[in-house]
Design a protein around this nucleic acid. Structure first.
Lengths: 207, 207
DNA sequence: GGCAGAATCACTCTTTCGGGGGATAACCTG
DNA sequence: CAGGTTATCCCCCGAAAGAGTGATTCTGCC
């Protein structure tokens, strides 16, 4: 009997999965939570085998919750759950110890297959999610944006429309310094002017 | 008896709402569709009173489907349904004839209240969605981005990193013309440089 | 304690951007 | 048709960005 717990801020999704899984042999409903806090609260006195976890929740991100849960309860298997099919999120979930990732538009069969797969220690991806991850990893080979905190700060200010001299004044730096950081940003994101810098930054969710 | 139909590409959501509404007195399950085509197909030989419609579906957008449905079957009441709480989408749905908008994290009570409200000709908003709409309309009073097709074209090229002379060469214009368009873009979006132009354009989903 | 990377500052030069001012023709729409 | 919008073109000028090069702290990590 696989005890399944779900964390999602959408009652409709909880209800839907509950309904899909009820009467499913070998699967037991352990409980549910609508946010990270009540999820952590549940596991103080209870347990489960597989946690279906929405990655996009208000407050604590699913990605963070995943890390916390896996640290506290390493034997727990976490299955990411999301409407989005974005390689970046999928990658982050996996880095934080998730055992797989399915999309909310997956079929019942796929959902059940995924639960069994991760329960037995496997890794499961929705077809599309797997592709997205592969595509992301392919693209991130050529471009890996690892920005320092200072660079991120300046990137944010550029995006808000501040010029280099204004940024320099605002954060008490020389404009030469700001200029250097800006050049490094262009180099790191492999773009050649402000327009494409901001566009890429938004795409990569850096701002 | 209110006949409720649902269009959503997530089986989990369909199942969840089905489950929430079953045994609810006064509400009957008319059917379901996972995309715009099968929804339109259903209504050839069938009917319903209220349609719950996801706004973010692959292929034809919920927003478009809403317009088509309301044109063909004006007596139908459409209730927008989404994970996102964004004023822009809500506004577009309403402009296309929707009678309300609820979020997927609404409670069962709210969902049922919304169905009854729109069935009797009313307008219903999830509390948060109403706020988002109000906030959007407030902000859109000061900024209404109505760009010409030429401006959108040039905006796109700017976002891709082309400089004015490059754009001029690419679309066979004088660089003075491109310069003018660029200045108009800055004026229309009420920004003062390229960085904030691109940022705002992305925010407003213009590119 | 040393080394790498980050963060800081410095200077020059060319290109681009952005503000200001115009002008003309084509086009919808009332 | 008149009037507004769009698209096109033109010029000047100062400010900002971007490319090139180099150097000095500071700080986390082995």
């Amino acid at each position: 009997m696989i005890r399944v717990f779900i964390v999602d801020d959408h009652p409709v999704v909880i209800e839907g999965i509950h309904s899909l899984l009820q009467n499913e042999k070998g699967i037991e409903w352990a409980g549910q939570a609508m946010n990270a806090q009540s999820c952590l609260g549940f596991f103080v006195n209870n347990t489960a085998d597989v946690v279906l976890m929405d990655i996009s929740m208000p407050g604590m991100e699913g990605v963070e919750l995943c890390a916390v849960m896996k640290e506290k309860y390493p034997s727990l298997m976490v299955l990411g759950l999301s409407s989005f099919n974005q390689g970046l999120y999928i990658k982050k979930m996996m880095e934080n110890g998730a055992s797989g990732y399915i999309l909310k538009n997956s079929s019942k069969e796929e959902l059940i297959e995924a639960i069994h797969a991760v329960y037995s220690g496997g890794i499961f991806f929705s077809g599309e999610a797997g592709e997205a991850l592969a595509a992301y990893q392919k693209s991130s080979k050529t471009i890996l944006p690892v920005l320092s905190s200072r660079e991120k700060e300046i990137l944010g200010l550029i995006a808000e429309g501040y010029t280099n001299p204004q940024i320099a004044e605002k954060i008490f730096l020389s404009q030469f310094t700001v200029d250097s950081h800006r050049k490094n940003l262009l180099a790191k994101l492999n773009v050649k002017n402000t327009a494409s810098l901001i566009r890429k930054a938004v795409e990569q969710k850096l701002i």
